[in-house]
């Protein structure tokens, strides 16, 4: 599968897919998309990169261990739930703030933070599985 063309395209394809996955993640609350789909797209991107160029470059590229990313995602997700405790409302209640940045109102919410947590968990876990299976190629 490691044809020259595939190896040449793979980095661009991967970065495009990761960008797209973040786009899908962020628009998820109002349009089709969300953490699960975004995470799967990003994980597929990692898998494609791994098939094309080997697992080691992927591991270097994402810097953190994929399971670390996954665990961090779970932590972020839980934190998003715990945030509501400080507002005196039950666990996991959505909280919204609307800061204005450069004259544009941006909707930020604990729900979005939670969705990012979901995204990270899926990227980490599925990516880790895919990379681990690809790695066995060498032995």
């Amino acid at each position: 599968m490691r044809t020259v063309i595939f190896r040449a395209i793979a980095p661009y394809l991967t970065s495009l897919m990761v960008l797209f996955s973040i786009f899908v993640l962020l628009r998820g609350h109002n349009e089709p998309g969300g953490g699960f789909i975004g995470g799967l797209i990003a994980a597929s991107a990692l898998a494609i990169y791994g098939i094309a160029c080997g697992v080691e470059p992927v591991r270097r590229a994402i810097y953190f261990h994929p399971m670390g990313i996954s665990a961090f995602g779970l932590f972020v997700g839980t934190l998003a739930g715990v945030l509501s405790v400080f507002a005196g409302v039950p666990f996991m209640t959505g909280l919204w703030v609307y800061p204005t940045l450069f004259g544009v109102e941006i909707a930020l919410s604990s729900v979005l933070v939670f969705d990012i947590g979901v995204y990270l968990v899926v990227v980490g876990a599925i990516g880790s599985i895919a990379l681990a299976l690809e790695e066995r190629d060498r032995d």
Binding site: G28, H29, G34, G35, G77, M92, G94, S109, V111, F114
Partner: peptide, 21 residues
Amino acid sequence: VAHGTNVVNVILVDFRGTDTL
């Protein structure tokens, strides 16, 4: 209530967030 128009996603991350966790 939940300020989201994609109902599926709102259910996942807001209404039933603990479940998703």
